[in-house]
Amino acid sequence: MTAAPRSVRVTGEAPGLFAPVDLTLPPLSVTCLLGASGVGKSTLLRLLAGLPTGVAFRGRVERLPAALMGQDAGLLPWLTVAQNVGLGARLRGEPEAPARTARLIEAVGLEGSAGRLPAQLSGGQRQRVALARTLAEDRPLVLLDEPFSALDVRLRLLIGDMAVRLLTGRTVLIVTHDPAEAARLGDRIVVMTPEGLSEQPPPRGPIPRRHDAPDVLATQARLTGRLIA
């Protein structure tokens, strides 16, 4: 596993969209980013991924090689689940790693679907394939844009916990609309508004935290309050 030697940081502004921001992702930890729809969360994530954003951003980005899971699952419809999970190796001309691929497919609860095509999956299943594909990439920085938004409550808990465990030792940014998820999974919780970024102190304890721990529930309530204010 590659260690993240330095922090990842984006500083700057997008006039008309968001005021100056300074988002630093502490190495080897999970940062959860929340905020109203359209405020620019995906834009920040794309900046960190080194992708074009379509908005006028003025500022600096310090990046690491990143694995990305976009808001749209972006599976290749002509590849099977297993082939989609192994897309990175395929694109780089590396040998396949069938055992590892199978393990990741099992980890996201899709054992038995390895040979299916994306069109034969539900939205939540597709999202899980996309997550497995992201986990398959061995990158120091992992960027997840609403990775669990299409999952039912139970899977959201199980797969969220599993993802955070599998991503130990990497720098992770998770964009989410779910305060409960942020309270469970974030080493650090950041709320984005057009005025900029602000921190929300995370609950005590290592991640993933229990969904019903009093501290987690309190943080969840405070976050919800801020997001609806």
Binding site: L51, L68, M69, G70, A73, G74, L75, L91
Partner: peptide, 12 residues
């Protein structure tokens, strides 16, 4: 969306 993901994978 597929291009975005693929681009981060460092393909030729």
């Amino acid at each position: 969306a597929q291009m975005d993901v693929a681009l981060t994978m460092g393909p030729s």
